[in-house]
Design a protein around this nucleic acid. Structure first.
Lengths: 196, 196
DNA sequence: CAGCTAACGAGACGCGGCGTCTCGTGAGCT
DNA sequence: AGCTCACGAGACGCCGCGTCTCGTTAGCTG
């Protein structure tokens, strides 16, 4: 995110920062007010005080705009696992922070809308992974790798991390409660499964 | 599913079974051809050889139709865990069957579209849980509960099951590979975490 | 500073799908 | 045999789509 003036492709001409931010803000507001599939470009343009063409000029598709808008505000922060030497404590803290983030009403709404948008648009899926789940996975994997008491194979570590993240994401998508305590319990189970 | 002639509410009048099935089939075809957000009621009516009013008469919203259609064909079967006495073998078989189901191209597409539809419509979410994830969870929970070698609390069993299901669902939604072998490895880790 | 130029706000355009309505018609109960 | 209500068909006004064409203006270049 936060490319000041250029899209990324071959035509980096001068671009109004004011319009760009107004569009992303308006999109965010409307998404949280009316939901993903009631979002219209016309409404975004009207609220942002912008011509429709300005939106179509810089975002090729509606989902691209949605992804930019939702990832623009840091409702979903790819929290990194600390390394204090105590792998259980570190992973618990990591999972707790994630639970706080995607378990909050706003974070859950953001995650759900991003998931829905990513579902049909591989490009959005890529962006979501690059900005959120990727760093999340990498950070957790790295922390497990650095834990002396864990002798698991890389493949096992990957499945373990996916089970922890997936378990939490699944609860959110299924509209089940996701608490810090629940996240901690999941982490304890999976880490014990890795031999800790 | 498969209520022969009545919707379920207070007005169970005579209803054309031919039209009902034609509509669900047409919806399924169009969903897999064009994706969720390119599905138009007009196109469904045209392909089914049906008046639009017939669709609007029996399904209140587009997502309701989508859910009925996707759950009508049994692309997603809520596979139940067997009980042979060997809990690792049983859970591995259960997870393997699930991986086959939602890991196949068609199953993955169905799961993604249902997830997207459920994201914005709690009603669909409820239906999906009732028809798919609910039985899946219950069956796994029951099997774990019956395993003498597992002394985990109910809460721990729930988190363990969510970690297994969530880990697999997460891989599908994130467009990662989901294999039978990977599912087996996840199961092994989580069960070991439960003390097996 | 002056001039150029492309992005800007505004909005008109045709199009396609929306959800509602109004027709005969015919299937299926009584 | 008669009644009745769901049916297929399609017309209706409406709305948002994505494209286009206007001046206007911000900001680079000389």
């Amino acid at each position: 995110m936060t490319e000041p003036a250029a899209p990324q492709d071959g035509r980096p001409r001068r671009r109004s920062e004011r319009a760009r931010v107004a569009i992303l803000d308006a999109t965010n507001e409307l998404l949280h007010e009316n939901g993903l599939d009631n979002l219209s470009i016309e409404a975004v343009a009207a609220r942002a005080g912008v011509g429709k063409q300005t939106i179509y000029r810089w975002w090729p598709t509606r989902p691209a705009l949605v992804a930019d808008a939702l990832l623009h505000r840091d409702d979903l922060e790819p929290l990194l696992a600390p390394d204090t030497g105590d792998v259980v404590k570190d992973m618990t803290r990591w999972a707790g922070a994630l639970a706080d983030s995607i378990g909050s009403p706003r974070g859950a709404a953001t995650l759900r809308m991003l998931t829905a948008a990513a579902t049909e648009h591989p490009e959005i899926s890529r962006r979501l992974h690059e900005r959120f789940s990727g760093p999340l996975q990498s950070s957790a994997l790295e922390r497990l790798k650095n834990a002396d008491e864990i002798t698991a194979t890389p493949s096992q570590r990957r499945h373990a991390v996916d089970a922890m993240i997936g378990g939490m994401v699944f609860k959110v998508l299924a509209h089940q409660k996701l608490t810090r305590a629940g996240a901690a319990e999941s982490v304890r189970i999976v880490l014990r499964g890795l031999g800790v």
